Amino acid sequence: MGIHRPMDSRTGLPGKDAVLAACRGFPPIEDIALLDAADELAALHQTREHTPLCALEQTDWHHARLMCDIDEWVVSVTPIPFPGARVHTHTMGQVIDRLAHATVQTYIALAAAPDAFFHEASVQLADLGDAYQDLADELEQRTRRLPEITIPC
Rank of each mutant, 00 (worst) to 15 (best):
P81T: 00
W73D: 03
H88E: 12
W61E: 15
F82Y: 03
W73N: 01
D97P: 07
M67H: 13
L53D: 15
L56R: 12
F82N: 01
H101V: 08
D69M: 09
R48Y: 00
T91S: 14
I96R: 06
S76D: 15
L66R: 12
A100M: 09
R48K: 10
R86V: 00
G84T: 02
H101N: 10
A64P: 07
P79R: 01
W73K: 02
H63I: 03
Q94M: 08
R86L: 00
H63F: 08
A102Y: 02
F82M: 02
V87L: 00
D97A: 13
Q94G: 05
T47M: 07
F82L: 01
T78M: 12
L44P: 11
A85N: 02
H88W: 07
P79V: 01
H45F: 12
V75E: 04
I80A: 10
A100L: 10
D69L: 09
A85C: 01
T51P: 07
Q58T: 14
Q58S: 14
A102I: 02
R65L: 15
V95G: 05
D60R: 07
T47C: 04
H45L: 06
H63P: 06
R65V: 14
W73H: 06
T78L: 04
E49Q: 10
S76K: 15
P81F: 03
Q46F: 05
D71L: 10
F82I: 00
V74S: 10
A100F: 11
G84V: 00
D69K: 07
I70M: 15
T47E: 09
D97G: 13
H90V: 04
V74C: 11
H101L: 10
H45W: 13
C54A: 14
T78V: 11
D69Q: 13
L66Y: 13
H90I: 02
L99T: 12
T91Q: 09
H90N: 05
A64V: 08
D97L: 06
I70P: 14
R48Q: 11
T59C: 10
M67P: 09
R98F: 02
Q94T: 06
H101W: 03
L53Q: 15
C68P: 09
P83L: 01
L53S: 15
A100N: 09
A85W: 02
E49T: 04
L66E: 12
A100I: 09
T51L: 12
E72V: 13
H50E: 04
V87G: 02
L66M: 13
L53H: 14
D71A: 13
V74E: 11
D60H: 05
S76P: 14
T78Y: 05
R86S: 05
D71K: 11
